[in-house]
């Protein structure tokens, strides 16, 4: 069993981003970057499957600029065996990213692909499903539980209103939801070891895939601000405001 884990470098989830002053995009100058939280969960799940003796090899892959090597090293420190950077300066959309990932899937023939359900920058929630279409693999998105027994993969998914369980054929794509696991922290010895694990760099252009964006960013702005409200002193005052000012209860 070989597991491929595509990951993404994004703005750290604690950072509150702002648009650039010319509204051409989000201001990423001097902003702390990190591995997308859902990707950490994907790496963790792959490592747990390996630790349980159900997988032999974990390959972390990312599409991005040279700086993304930092997040690949993190994945290696968490337990991935080797890493691949598909290097491009183009900020590819999920469609382009899944086309590049398809090329990697063709080369590596993984049995299972685990990736985050969405990146917290674009909030698109597309890449896993698109890769499913391009590879023809089965998919189980928003996983909160993954059970792998031999060739049989059972996944519990978080859906509106509750939980759904699917049995899917391998090769398969699983996208992670928040409650799938709690990712570990990399230990210092593992961070040191990760430095000597293999990290291949493939220029995106070598894969012969069209990743030119189809969407133009016209502008990026702040959402409408809510006006500051009032602090009420008592429950009675709250009820009075809701009845007579906001008129939302009767």
């Amino acid at each position: 069993m070989k597991i491929l884990v595509p990951i993404k470098r994004v703005v750290d989830y604690n950072v509150k981003v702002r648009p650039k002053s010319d509204e051409s995009g989000v201001d990423l100058n001097n902003v702390k970057m990190a591995m997308n939280p859902f990707c950490e969960i994907a790496v963790e799940e792959a490592v747990r499957l390996k630790e349980a003796g159900k997988a032999e090899e974990i390959i972390a892959v990312t599409i991005g600029a040279s700086s993304s090597q930092e997040q690949l090293r993190t994945a290696l420190a968490l337990g991935a065996d080797r890493a691949i950077l598909v290097e491009t300066e183009v900020e590819a959309e999920p469609l382009g990213i899944s086309k590049l990932l398809k090329s990697i899937v063709d080369k590596e023939s993984p049995d299972l692909i685990i990736l985050g359900k969405q990146a917290i920058d674009g909030d698109n929630n597309q890449t896993g499903q698109m890769l499913g279409a391009l590879t023809g693999f089965s998919q189980a998105t928003f996983a909160s539980e993954v059970n792998l027994e031999g060739e049989s993969l059972s996944v519990t998914r978080e859906i509106d209103g509750g939980l759904q369980t699917l049995d899917i054929n391998l090769p398969a794509i699983v996208t992670t939801d928040l409650r799938l696991n709690e990712p570990r922290y990399a230990s210092l010895p593992n961070i040191m070891k990760a430095k000597s694990k293999p990290l291949d760099i493939i220029p995106a252009a070598d894969l012969g895939v069209d990743i030119s964006p189809r969407l133009e960013i016209i502008k990026v702005t702040l959402p409408a601000e809510r006006e500051a409200g009032v602090i009420v002193e008592t429950v009675d005052e709250l009820i009075d405001k809701l009845k007579n000012e906001a008129k939302v209860i009767s």
Binding site: V17, D123, I217, T221
Partner: peptide, 8 residues
């Protein structure tokens, strides 16, 4: 985008 912190 970005959890609604920006609108694209």
């Amino acid at each position: 985008i970005y959890a609604g912190n920006c609108i694209a």
